[in-house]
């Protein structure tokens, strides 16, 4: 296990003075962040603010131009790829499921970093996959092809893969994109449960601010490659910061069910009209005019 070198004071994952770029385009510059152990951290920000880029760097998928990423206090780029893979799991935004692959086969591939030439499928591998399938509620679907699953089930299968990998730190890049609201909740509830049950450190990139506030212990708001605010959702999610980060005028109220902050955008334009009697027929101009 990875607790040996770690003390409670060392964050499991830390970035110091990062500059991240694709070719000549600098996306993130001078960013430092520390991921709290055993908590759910959610990164939010407008499109193209560099939040996925930051996650890729934290997962060692992108080499920083400057600065370092520390995994349990060690420079992640000096660690062997396979060792990193036993301590940190990453679920990329759109992973590819090979055609016709079964759920169990997919999840089993999460054991790759633990396998060797002469240890290709150990008892531990088998038990880890079984436990991951149980924990994600996928055991009954284990033999089903991934192609046939619903979006939420498919995402649960991928999370099971990350779980079978057996890492203390799990990074997920927009795990709820392309899912309908019910499936978004299903996936986030699962991640919350995995975090609370095993004290796993989880880092997510999310788009939906209200869901981010509900599920985050630690919220990181990014704008143009910088961190504008971070901390508990209650402190970060203020009208001023939402206005700054998203350019959106809003009020922040309490979520009636969870008492977490909830962003309500200030209406403008056509949408500002008070609700009247329903129109007899939908006006195409109005439908098109509404973004």
């Amino acid at each position: 296990m990875t607790m040996t070198s770690a003390t409670t004071s060392t964050p499991p994952l830390e970035a110091q003075d990062l500059r991240l770029a694709y070719d000549d385009r600098v996306v993130v510059d001078g960013l430092s962040v520390s991921i709290p152990r055993g908590q759910v951290t959610v990164i939010v920000g407008a499109n193209a603010c560099g939040k996925s880029t930051l996650l890729r760097a934290l997962a060692r998928l992108l080499k920083p131009r400057r600065g370092t990423v520390l995994l349990d206090g060690r420079d992640i780029h000096r660690l062997p790829t396979r060792q990193v893979a036993t301590e940190l799991g990453i679920l990329p935004q759109q992973p590819i499921a090979p055609e016709g692959i079964s759920v169990a086969d997919l999840v089993a591939r999460g054991r790759h970093p633990h396998q060797r030439w002469l240890r290709q499928w150990s008892v531990t591998d088998e038990q880890a996959v079984e436990a991951a399938l149980q924990a994600t509620g996928m055991a009954d679907l284990a033999d089903r092809p991934v192609d046939e699953l619903s979006g939420g089930q498919r995402q649960r299968a991928w999370i099971a893969l990350a779980l079978a990998q057996g890492t203390d730190v799990m990074l997920l890049d927009e795990p709820t994109t392309f899912l309908d609201l019910a499936h978004q909740i299903e996936v986030l509830d699962l991640l919350h449960e995995l975090n609370r049950r095993d004290e796993r450190t989880i880092v997510l990139v999310l788009h939906d601010l209200n869901l981010a506030c509900r599920y985050a212990d630690h919220l990181v708001a990014m704008k143009q490659g910088r961190i504008v605010a971070e901390g508990p959702p209650r402190e970060v999610m203020t009208p001023e910061i939402v206005e700054d980060v998203f350019g959106l005028a809003c009020q922040v109220i309490d979520d009636p069910l969870t008492a977490t902050p909830m962003v309500v955008p200030v209406p403008n334009g056509r949408r500002a009209e008070p609700p009247g009697p329903p129109a007899s027929a939908p006006d195409p101009a109005l439908v098109n005019g509404h973004r």
């Binding site: 890729r56 997962a59 060692r60 998928l61 790829t81 396979r82 990193v84 893979a85 036993t86 940190l88 799991g89 990453i90 679920l91 990329p92 759109q94 992973p95 590819i96 499921a97 090979p98 997919l106 591939r109 999460g110 790759h112 970093p113 396998q115 030439w117 290709q120 990998q165």
Partner: peptide, 17 residues
């Protein structure tokens, strides 16, 4: 042996070592 995880995409493969 690594082709099994390369099938999941380059990023996922790297994440799996």
């Amino acid at each position: 042996r690594h082709l099994r995880v390369l099938d999941l995409g380059d990023d996922a493969a790297r994440g799996l070592g």
